[in-house]
Design a protein around this nucleic acid. Structure first.
Lengths: 136, 136
DNA sequence: CTTGAACCTCTAGCCGCTAGAGGGATTATA
DNA sequence: TATAATCCCTCTAGCGGCTAGAGGTTCAAG
């Protein structure tokens, strides 16, 4: 049994965020102390770790609800979980591709050698999309 | 002189977003028609294009305010503009690196061959951070 | 002159937190 | 045991960057 502060330290999830997850229905309302303070068990810790890890991988709160739901029913087929993860993978790949294009353009832009704004590549490039290497 | 709808079509920025930018002080309040409708000039179009392009590159509203400010003063040194862009470039690179790590892990996770959730790699991996290849 | 699309303002909602006010509970030390 | 320091409670409001909807007005084509 540990307090919300302990749980926060162990998982790296901030206290208000833990309460927010409870509110959103991601974690069950835990037991309370005599004085109405939250007291968590090992299961609470595991669940929150799961959530934290999932958030780090960019799963949405809704995705995580689905994954948690699945993890409570080990007999179900895992297609659904796989589908969510595959979707995330393709999101991530799309974002990487987009960021790579941005990187290229920013690199070009920041190669600016001008002294003043009048002929500064940063400003010019932003003003004139036609100068871009690629669509975005 | 064109309407907000026209401006929206030409720039690809949605109408409520244009009004939002006006509210945020990114674009000046334009002239109005007799009946109080917004009427934009070529300058308005250019400015909004600049903004759109900057947003696509991930500059924040505040960044863009700075860049617009600079672009109105061509005599100023362009160091500041360059600084903002360089900062963005390093942000973008950091994000790419992070997403790459996520991609690796998601790829591993989605290689799940199990039939049911009990032994599904997706769920397992999320529950046990220790299985990850890398920190994130 | 009528109709229907486009426009207006205003308020509220989205996500995923985060911050602060104003209080009560717990724990470490004197 | 008293007190101080720290923790925790609920509640409300705010962040960025939009987006949606209500309820009303104006514009432009036929």
């Amino acid at each position: 049994m540990f307090s919300i502060g302990e749980l926060s330290k162990r998982t790296g999830v901030k206290i208000p965020t833990i309460r927010y997850y409870e509110q959103m229905g991601l974690i069950d309302a835990p037991e309370r102390s005599e004085g109405n303070q939250r007291r968590y068990s090992k299961e609470g810790l595991q669940r929150l770790s799961f959530i934290r890890h999932s958030r780090e991988l960019g799963f949405s709160i809704e995705d995580i609800k689905g994954l948690l739901e699945l993890s409570q029913h080990p007999e179900k087929p895992c297609q659904d979980a796989d589908k969510i993860a595959v979707q995330r993978l393709s999101d991530v790949r799309a974002r990487i591709a987009k960021l790579r294009r941005l990187e290229r353009e920013l690199k070009r832009i920041t190669a600016c050698q001008a002294d003043n704004v009048a002929s500064c590549a940063v400003i010019e490039s932003l003003a004139d999309h036609g100068l871009c290497d690629a669509e975005h």
